[in-house]
Computed example of a mutant assay.
Amino acid sequence: MESSGNAVRPVPWNKGKIVGQKARRTKEALARAATRRGARNSRKRAVGADRDALAERSLPQNPGMRANLRAESSAGAYDGIRLTLQHLSKGRSMVNRFAPIALACAMAGFVPAVGAQQQTAAGAQKFLAMLAKDGALYLQALDKTSGAMTVEGTKTYTNRWLKNGVPQDDGPYGGGGTDPATARLKNPLSVISVANVDPRAQTNDCATRIETTTQEKPGETEVKDGTASKETFFGYDELPYRVTKTSKFEDPAVKYAGPYYIVWGKTVTSRGTNVIAANVQDPRFNAHLLFVSNNPEMLDRVEYAMKFLIASCDKTASTGF
């Protein structure tokens, strides 16, 4: 029994057992709390180690650049990267997922960037000059009347009777004759050089002078045997003869000699399946500068360079229309 003042209360028969259980539970709770605190501290240390290792691996491999970044760390630059990782590393999985992206963005300001080449009309001219040097540019100069690249010449026929297979001094059909002839070129002219020079021989990034050549030489000699009627002592006999056909034409390299000029502010371009063409201003021919390729990426680059020159050299562009 317990007494409190004058009141008397009975003591529970299991009071000691209850008190012992409460003490044991309290002790176990304290032990679990200590275990959780230890686990949290271990995770924090592991995350910090992972973060430092990730930041170290993300440094450039170049020793000089690594030294520069570490030097910047004293001024707070590299610490900024670490703070970025700390902000993202609330959980280890989040660090592994997002830290490389954040680190790349943060380090972009510290790694020396190679400046991109500024696009200019002079640069586009240099690009075309390199293509010409590599033999990648051609020029098509169509005659305004025929719509083709042609050269004029003659075709001569020489007919000789054959005696025992040997040509004689005379022949049928008056011994032959000469007729005018026209030959069509099979290929466009090869561009050997381009330069930023205008028709007044002044340096001008808005004009291109084009020099061309061709190795094509139309003309041939053809020999053919046949028979023809010839009057003899006994009447007309079919006798063998030989005809030699000789074609001669003007030199295409002379007829189509340049220079040709493109004034970019006054020209237009067009594109086919595997060709880019720019109109060439020429009083003699309907001429076009051609780039031919099966590479769509190179076609895109050449087309962009030509259109860049047109846009850069358009005098009306400054009006906004």
Rank of each mutant, 00 (worst) to 15 (best):
M1Y: 15
M1W: 15
E2G: 13
S4W: 10
V8Q: 14
V8Y: 10
V8M: 08
R9M: 11
P10C: 07
P12V: 08
W13Y: 10
N14H: 13
K17F: 09
G20W: 02
Q21W: 09
K22A: 11
K22I: 08
E28I: 08
A33T: 10
R36I: 12
R37Q: 14
A39Y: 05
N41R: 13
L54D: 10
E56T: 14
E56M: 08
R57Q: 12
R57V: 06
S58E: 11
L59A: 14
L59G: 01
Q61F: 11
N62C: 02
P63V: 11
G64M: 13
G64D: 12
M65G: 03
R66I: 00
A67F: 06
L69T: 14
S73T: 07
G80Y: 03
T84I: 01
L85P: 05
L88V: 10
G91Y: 12
R97P: 00
A99V: 04
L103A: 13
C105L: 05
C105N: 13
V111N: 04
P112Q: 14
V114Y: 11
Q118D: 14
Q118W: 09
G123Y: 10
A124I: 05
A124F: 01
Q125Y: 08
F127T: 05
L128F: 02
L128P: 05
A129L: 05
Q140D: 02
A141S: 12
K144W: 02
G147W: 01
E152V: 03
E152R: 10
G153A: 00
K155S: 14
T158Q: 07
T158V: 11
R160V: 01
P167H: 07
D170R: 14
G171H: 00
P172N: 10
G176M: 09
G177N: 11
T178K: 12
T178F: 01
T178G: 03
A181Q: 02
P188G: 05
S193P: 04
A195R: 06
A195H: 02
V197A: 09
D198H: 00
P199W: 11
R200Y: 12
A201K: 10
A207T: 01
T208C: 10
T208H: 08
T208F: 08
R209W: 06
I210F: 06
I210T: 07
T212F: 00
T214K: 03
P218Y: 01
E222L: 06
T227Q: 06
A228I: 03
T232S: 09
T232A: 00
G235R: 05
Y236G: 05
Y241T: 00
Y241L: 04
K245L: 15
S247L: 03
K248H: 01
E250L: 04
D251R: 04
K255F: 04
P259M: 03
Y261F: 15
I262D: 00
V263F: 07
K266V: 02
T267R: 12
R271S: 15
R271N: 12
N274Y: 06
A277M: 09
A278M: 07
N279W: 03
D282W: 09
R284D: 07
F285Y: 15
F285H: 07
L289C: 04
V292N: 03
S293K: 12
S293H: 09
N294A: 13
M298C: 02
M298R: 14
M298H: 10
V302P: 11
F308R: 06
F308P: 07
L309N: 06
A311W: 08
A311V: 08
C313N: 08
K315P: 09
T316P: 07
S318E: 04
